[in-house]
Design a protein around this nucleic acid. Structure first.
Lengths: 234, 234
DNA sequence: CCAAAAGTGTTAGGCTTACACCCATGC
DNA sequence: GCATGGGTGTAAGCCTAACACTTTTGG
C-alpha cells in the first residue's frame, strides 16, 4: 500500500471519546472519564482514547476504545472534531479526532468499568481535565444539544422503556433548562414515534407512570416520507 | 517534544478543501477543483489538498493549501470531517480532514488560478472525482446548506455590495429550490443586518436594483444580545 | 410605448406558548 | 384523607406561507 507518499511527515493520530450517559435516578447527564494510565500526566482526568492502528478506520478505532472501556458495541457514536494544534499534547504532537457516544448507563459492564477505573462524572461538575480535553467535551456537548433537537437520539441514553417524565427530565438535563410539561408531551406524542405500554413505572410515584418505548422503524418510515424530527422546546 | 509515544504507528495526515464560490452572473454555486498533479491518479479531478506539516495546525495546513491555490487569506473556512478508511487512498493510507471554504470568486488571483490549473465547476455538474472526494463534497454541501440557514455566511460568497435579487439567487442556488421573493426580503431585512446603499446596480435591469451591504458588527452585537440568525425559507 | 426586472402588503391558518387543576394511589 | 407525583386542554398571538400588481427606465 505505501508505495507513494514515502518522504512525507507522519503523525500520531488518536481518537478520544466523549461518552455521555444519563442517570435516570438523580436526573444528571454524565460523562465517563478515566484516570490517565500513562505518562505524561499519568493519573489526570482524561477522556478515554487511543491511537489509530494502521489497519483500522477512525470509526473502528473509536469503537474499539469504547468497547474496551464499556464492553458495549453498536453504540450511537458521532465524529465530532479533529484537534491538531502542534502543542496540544505535551507528550508529543498528536492529532486526535474526538467522538461523542450515547450509552445507556445500565448497559455498561460493571466489571469492565471497575477494571478500567472509569468514573461517571456529572456534566455540571466536571473535574479539571488533561490537555485540551475540556474543549473536546465542550464541543461535544454543544453538538449533542443540537443533535437531540433534530434527531431522536435522546432515547440512546434511556432504557428501552421509559416514562414521559423521564424523557422530559433527560431533555431538561441536556438543555439545562426547564421545559413545559404539557407542551413537551403534546409535541413528542404528536410525532407518533412512541408506543405506550400497558405497564407502569411505580417506583417514583404512587399513581405510577406509563412506560413508553421508542419505535425506530416508525422514525425510518416517516423520514423516508420527508418527516423531520423536531423537539425544539421553550 | 517526542519523548513519549515513540513506538506507536504514525499516519499520513492531509487536509482537503471544498472551496465554494458563487457566480453572480450565471447564478451557479461552484467548486474550485484541480487536476491532480502527482501519481497515483495523476490528472484526475481532485479537491485541492496537502499534507499536514509537523509544525502547523490542521487549520493552518488548510489555510496554506487555500492560499497556495487562490492567493487568499482570512477566508471563511470550517472543518468538516475526518476521513480515515484504510483503503480510501490507493496510494497508501492517508487520513484526510476535509474543510469547506467560502470565497468571493472575483477575489481570486487569476495568475495563481491559472498556474495551479484550478477550475471552477458547477456544483450541479461535477466531474467524477478521484478517491472518495465526491463524498467529501457531498458532506460539505450538506453542511453548507445547514450553515447558511443559521449563520450569515452567505455573504462570504458575494461581493461587498450586492442586490437583494443577487442574495436571493445565491440562496436559491445553495438550497437548490425557489424562494418566495417577498417573504425572503421581508425576512432578511427584518433582521437589520443589511445596509441599503444609495447606489444601484444597473447592468441587469433598466430600473436598477439597490445595492446592500452586510454589517458584520451588527450581527456580532445582536448575537451578544441573544439573537439567532435564521433564514429558513420555504 | 413596451419589455424586463425591481419592488412592495395583506390575509388565513397553523404553530407556539402560557397556564392550573384533577387523578390515582400508598401510606 | 392527605400528600405525592402523573396526567390533561384551551386560548391568544405570533409567525409562516401564499399570492399579484405597480414602478422604473432604456431602447
Amino acid at each position: 500500500m505505501t508505495r507513494f507518499y514515502e518522504s512525507i511527515e507522519r503523525h500520531l493520530v488518536a481518537v478520544d471519546c466523549v461518552i455521555f450517559g444519563y442517570d435516570i435516578i438523580d436526573k444528571n447527564l454524565k460523562l465517563l472519564l478515566i484516570k490517565r494510565r500513562f505518562e505524561p500526566l499519568k493519573g489526570g482526568w482524561s477522556l478515554p482514547g487511543g491511537f489509530v492502528n494502521d489497519d483500522e478506520s477512525i470509526k473502528e478505532a473509536a469503537g474499539r476504545v469504547l468497547k474496551q472501556l464499556t464492553g458495549l458495541e453498536q453504540v450511537y457514536m458521532e465524529q465530532s472534531y479533529a484537534w491538531g494544534e502542534p502543542g496540544r499534547d505535551i507528550g508529543g504532537r498528536v492529532i486526535t479526532i474526538s467522538h461523542f457516544a450515547l450509552i445507556k448507563i445500565q448497559d455498561i459492564d460493571p466489571v469492565m468499568q471497575e477494571a478500567s477505573a472509569a468514573h461517571w462524572r456529572n456534566i455540571t461538575r466536571l473535574p479539571d481535565m488533561v490537555l485540551d480535553h475540556s474543549n473536546l467535551v465542550g464541543r461535544a456537548l454543544k453538538e449533542l444539544k443540537e443533535r437531540v433537537k433534530v434527531k431522536p437520539v435522546g432515547f440512546e441514553l434511556l432504557p428501552e422503556k421509559f416514562t414521559l417524565v423521564q424523557l422530559q427530565d433527560l431533555y431538561e438535563a441536556i438543555y439545562m433548562k426547564n421545559v413545559d410539561k404539557r407542551n413537551f408531551r403534546k409535541k413528542i406524542l404528536s410525532m407518533n414515534l412512541l408506543e405506550k405500554m400497558d405497564e407502569k413505572e411505580k417506583e417514583t410515584s404512587k399513581k405510577g407512570a406509563y412506560y413508553y418505548k421508542f419505535l425506530p422503524e416508525k422514525y425510518e418510515e416517516f423520514r423516508r416520507q420527508g418527516f423531520y424530527f423536531n423537539l425544539d422546546v421553550n
